[in-house]
Simulated assay, not measured.
Amino acid sequence: MSTPAIRPIQKKDDEHIASVIRRVLEELNVPKTGTVYEDTSLDVMFETYNRDGAVYFVVEENNKIIGGGGISQLANFDGNVCELQKMYFLSEARGKGIGQAMLKLCFNAAREFGYEKCYLETMPYMKAAQKLYQQEGFTYLDGPLGDTGHFSCPVHMIKVL
């Protein structure tokens, strides 16, 4: 067994990461409406993040994509804030410190892009994820920033970079 590697997404990863994200969302019973599940970008992740101010990383182990996460400018928001996006891992990737490593890569990229804050949206029952986010400096907000279209995600958090 090899050590998981985190690397920038490649075109060949699109189908695999879309499958991983949908599988995790289904496993966690996340609503299909008003969440990442229905994002049109899910099937074209390489193209979506192949632009200034955005990056997406995948986690690969034994030639298999087991997770990913990225950042991009927060949609419909006037400010220097990025959004942590589509950070999901298959069960086999959880509890190994991969999430923390992914966050550090995303934060470093965000700082390089010149963002001042990082925003995210999640589900109330994703307690392990929220614990990780809090450990990494995120705090809760009373409501959403911008308009991501993810109206079914009622938990909003932010971190100063």
Rank of each mutant, 00 (worst) to 15 (best):
R111Y: 08
L103G: 01
M102N: 01
E92K: 09
Q100W: 02
G68C: 07
G114A: 05
G114Y: 06
I98H: 03
F89E: 00
N63Y: 14
S72Y: 00
R111P: 01
Y88A: 03
S91E: 07
Q100I: 04
C106G: 01
G79M: 09
G79R: 08
N76M: 13
E83A: 15
S72C: 06
G69S: 09
K86Q: 12
Y88R: 08
G99E: 01
R94W: 01
I65Q: 00
I71G: 05
L90G: 02
K96A: 06
N76T: 08
S72W: 00
Q100L: 06
A101V: 07
L90I: 03
N80Q: 09
S72A: 12
I65E: 00
G69I: 08
G79C: 09
Q73W: 02
S72T: 08
G69L: 06
F113V: 02
G68I: 04
A110V: 08
G67N: 11
Y88C: 07
L90W: 03
K64Y: 07
I66R: 00
G79N: 12
A110H: 06
I65N: 00
L103I: 10
Q85M: 11
N108S: 12
K64F: 06
G68Q: 04
N108P: 01
S91H: 03
A93P: 05
C106N: 07
K86I: 12
I71T: 08
L105Q: 11
A101D: 05
A110S: 14
G114R: 03
D78R: 12
